[in-house]
Simulated scan of single mutants.
Amino acid sequence: MLNPYLEKRLFALPVQPILVEFDPKEIAAVITQITGLSLPIMETIPAFGFAAITPISPEMIRRVNALPGVRMVHANQTKTIFQLPTSGEEWFPTSESRNMLEAEEAIKQGFTGEAVKVGVVDTGLDATHPQLQGAEWYSTISWPAREVLDENGHGSHVSSTAAGKLHHTPQGVTVEGVSRSPLVSVKCLGRGIGTGFTSEVINAMAVCYDKGARVINMSLGSEECQGGCEICPECRMVATLAQRGIIIVVAAGNSGPQEDSIGCPGCSPDALSVAAVDRNGEVAAFSSRGGDEFPLKPDVAAPGVNIYSGTSRGSVIDVQELAAGVGFASISGTSMSTPHVAGLCALLKQKDPQITTSQIKQTMATKGHSKDTITGWGIPKWSYFA
């Protein structure tokens, strides 16, 4: 079956990359048939039944779709980071922003998150940065080369916010992540500007899972959910991992204030989707909204304006704001609010290893404000889960 999204766009381009879905038990047979058509395979995700194929013609896409064992053929969409650079006129250090979620209260009670791995699916990280030393790091970038370094800086900033070590910068600013969790960084967005493909993102999620992450941060997305959440490969991957007890925290997107501007996979009913607010708790103008199409999104909100945290030294983000110091930056976006929530989820996972995304939403429905399509139930706080 062709994903309806791909079917409508089958002849939009002479060639396009695809993502083939199949029964994981049939991987050998399916791969043999694909290679029998002389089609180069970019990467495979055996445990979850996916294989990415380099750009091919509409005719070849139909031939792949007709192969025995193939469940569905999807478009291999382009995914991007969700981040907006800011001037740095005001800095909101993570040592302060984390307290909007009452992270310090959790730490005082002995819940540091150190027993819970946090996965970050992003542009990678600076493994020698003082806030990020000791983190595990991998890459699923499939071409033109297996990129490793975080040349963009987005992933390092996100990782530092979620679980960066306490650090006092030369500028006299103290930074500290929401949790003290071990980090598993998987670079799936690269090529200089922070872009990747659906296959690389799904593979990165799989790596995080394989490496033991119990919370996965996804400060990324695309404007369109191909075929709807029940068919979209990323949304279904979110659902699969959620069923296994993994909490997937996803950025709502930066396409506000328009209604129904939630990105994918933030639109997934199984994701914990995060809007952005400023230090006063006011929603950011850029934060994506729900609406008639997404009446239940976003789910929660967190600080995402002028967030000052560590970033990859010498990266694109780092050099944009020299006043912040080498390896630090103040940037805005739902990309920045999302790791705040991911860090809190790690603290909650330490307190209750069995807690699920659904249970977090149930608590927020009781403790947060009445749900709306702007900030969901509002900012999740540690005390809500006492």
Rank of each mutant, 00 (worst) to 15 (best):
G291N: 09
R98C: 06
L347C: 06
Q350I: 03
E259I: 08
G194V: 09
S358Q: 15
S273A: 15
E21I: 01
R146F: 11
L241F: 13
S370P: 00
M60R: 14
D126V: 05
T128S: 14
P144C: 06
R244E: 14
P14E: 11
D299L: 08
P24T: 02
E96M: 09
L348W: 02
K361S: 03
V64P: 00
D210T: 11
A29K: 14
D292A: 15
E151T: 15
Y308F: 15
N76C: 04
E293G: 07
Q83N: 10
L101A: 03
D23A: 11
G36E: 03
M364L: 14
S261K: 09
Q243E: 15
F286Q: 03
V250C: 14
T240P: 00
R214V: 00
R244H: 13
A302L: 04
N65I: 03
P233M: 01
Q350H: 03
T32M: 01
H168W: 10
T356N: 12
K187I: 00
Q171V: 03
M1L: 06
V207M: 02
V30W: 10
I317F: 11
A285R: 13
N217Y: 07
D210N: 13
T198E: 08
G113M: 12
R146C: 12
K361L: 15
V121I: 14
G253R: 11
D122E: 13
I27E: 14
N76G: 05
G196S: 02
T128G: 05
Q109H: 04
S142A: 15
C235I: 05
K187G: 05
L149A: 15
G290M: 07
A251D: 02
P58D: 07
G304S: 07
P380Y: 06
P170Q: 07
C188T: 05
S315L: 09
P298V: 07
V70Q: 03
H157K: 09
V326S: 13
S261F: 09
S87H: 01
V118G: 00
G69M: 03
G196C: 06
V178R: 04
A329C: 13
A52W: 00
N203A: 15
A276F: 07
S222C: 13
I317Y: 11
V148F: 14
L13G: 00
F197T: 11
L10V: 02
G164R: 09
Q354W: 08
F92D: 03
R71F: 06
E59Y: 08
N76T: 03
R9V: 05
T94D: 00
V121L: 10
C232Q: 01
W382Y: 10
E200F: 04
P339N: 11
A127H: 12
I307L: 01
P265H: 12
V121D: 06
